[in-house]
Amino acid sequence: MASVPVPDRQALLEVRGLTVSFPGAGEHVKAVDGVSLDVRESEIVGLVGESGCGKSATALAIMGLIEHPGLAEADAIEFRGRDLTRMSPSQMRRIRGTDLAMIFQEPMTSLNPVLNIGEQVAEVLRAHRRVGRAEARARAVQLLGEVGIPDPRERASQYPHEISGGMRQRVMIAGALACEPGLLIADEPTTALDVTVQAQILDLIGDIRDEHRTAVLLITHDLGVVATTCDRVAVMYAGRLVEAAPSEELFATPLHPYTRGLLESIPTLGEGVRGGLRLRPIAGTVPAPGEWPPGCKFEPRCSLAIPSCSTSEPELLTAGGEHRVRCPVVLGRET
């Protein structure tokens, strides 16, 4: 693992060799295969990829939320220097919701429909902190105000179905922030939202980092969200990390053929088919877990593939600085 020493900012989360598998026909099928990544304090890291690449399973595994018969195994998942894989379920429960919090794509199904939004947030405080009912309620109202809910005192007594999708996501964020976590894992937090509301929520996530120094692991399929929000980015394909780099560098000099292909498939606001332009899609489709090819997972769709790509899977190679890529061909290092 090419871990670059960073003297000024400590790694808050270090994932090493994470593999997640689920029972399939006969044997366990891998959804995540040997993923290693770091998140430093007050940093926003994007984990990006298409459906089925394993990005959500990675997030759930970090939270200790892969349930039987699914299986998460890792060399280590260190959070503030403590290995989460060695913790008891009760120790994990204490960390989850306090120092390590998570929000999901669909706030409607993540909120309790029979609790008003003030109670949802107060519940987190009462579960993890020794606070009385009135104090928890007062703090909940304060948190709802901090995440941009207007008239939080009045709104606190509304139920999830009475508020908009954007407001529900703000309530989720208020609950996640209640115990001032060091790391917030956000799994597609804006995917279900309209674009103007998405902009509001991404701004809020940026503000939270700036004001509370909360680190964020942002899981998304949207490269535009990554480019405008994240400090560093890791690209996943078929359970593997295929490229990782500081955000600006990744978009300026994408290296992996998959990353390049993704960037070329995206229509931009400035061009159209009427000018004779065509999108350049990646040929073929993403292989399903259990149908991954033996060599490089991207080889069947890759225009740069050479014979050795189909037989041996490349390592994640250092391309200079913090830029790593799982492709020897683009680096001219094929053997």
């Binding site: 103007t196 902009a199 949207d222 535009g224 969200v225 929000t229 600006e248 606001l269």
Partner: peptide
């Protein structure tokens, strides 16, 4: 609406 679209240009934010 158009300004809110997250594009690959980090400055768009």
């Amino acid at each position: 609406l158009l300004s809110a679209v997250p594009t690959l240009d980090p400055e768009s934010r």
